[in-house]
Simulated scan of single mutants.
Amino acid sequence: MKLLVDMNLSPRWLGVLFEAGIEAAHWSMLGAHNAPDSEIMAYASVNGYVVLTHDLDFSAILAATQGEKPSVVQIRAEDVSPDVIGKQVIVALRQMAAELEDGALLTIEPNRTRLRVLPLQLRS
């Protein structure tokens, strides 16, 4: 698995991910700082990345398009510093690696982790 870290997260995430043996790149190294989320999603899909973000727009894009890839990991916490929630993110990434390879939305909150398999289905 390789992660594409969104602009709304610090490049410091790269060190934490590399230390855990996870390949990662920060969007600031790959594309325009003001690129729309749809461009980041397209890049991730074409290049086999899982998107790591703090932005809810990525899950909205997956829901609207019923996309199957790329997988998205969204951190839902007030403090998204790798010093604070990094260990929890690494544990979740390792536990859900197979699902993320297949296509999933993983939401990590301070007190719980939720996984939804892609494509997202509208609930009735």
Rank of each mutant, 00 (worst) to 15 (best):
N47P: 00
L120D: 01
Q95A: 00
M41L: 12
E109H: 05
N47F: 12
H33M: 11
L118K: 09
E19G: 08
Y43S: 06
R123S: 08
G21S: 00
Q74A: 14
R76A: 03
A97I: 09
L52C: 10
M1P: 06
E101T: 05
M96W: 07
W13M: 05
L118V: 01
I61V: 04
T53N: 11
F18V: 02
Y49E: 06
E78P: 00
A24M: 09
A35T: 11
K69A: 13
I40Q: 04
A60T: 08
E109R: 02
H26N: 09
V5E: 11
S38M: 09
L4Q: 11
A20P: 08
L4Y: 12
Q74D: 00
V72A: 08
S59M: 13
S28W: 11
L115D: 06
M7D: 10
M41N: 09
V91L: 14
R116T: 07
I22S: 09
P70A: 04
E68R: 12
A104D: 01
I40H: 04
N111G: 04
L4C: 10
Y43I: 05
M41Y: 04
G67I: 01
S124Y: 12
H26F: 04
A104H: 05
W27H: 08
N111P: 03
N111H: 04
A98Y: 04
A44H: 08
P82H: 07
H26S: 10
A64M: 14
D55V: 08
Q121H: 13
K69W: 09
V50N: 09
G67R: 15
M96V: 00
M41P: 00
M96D: 14
Q66L: 15
D57Y: 03
G86H: 14
V46P: 00
A92L: 02
V72H: 13
G67V: 06
A98G: 02
P11D: 11
E99C: 03
R76N: 08
V51W: 15
S124M: 10
Q66K: 10
D79V: 00
P82M: 04
H26K: 11
E39L: 11
E101V: 01
L100Y: 14
D55A: 01
E101I: 07
V80D: 05
R123C: 06
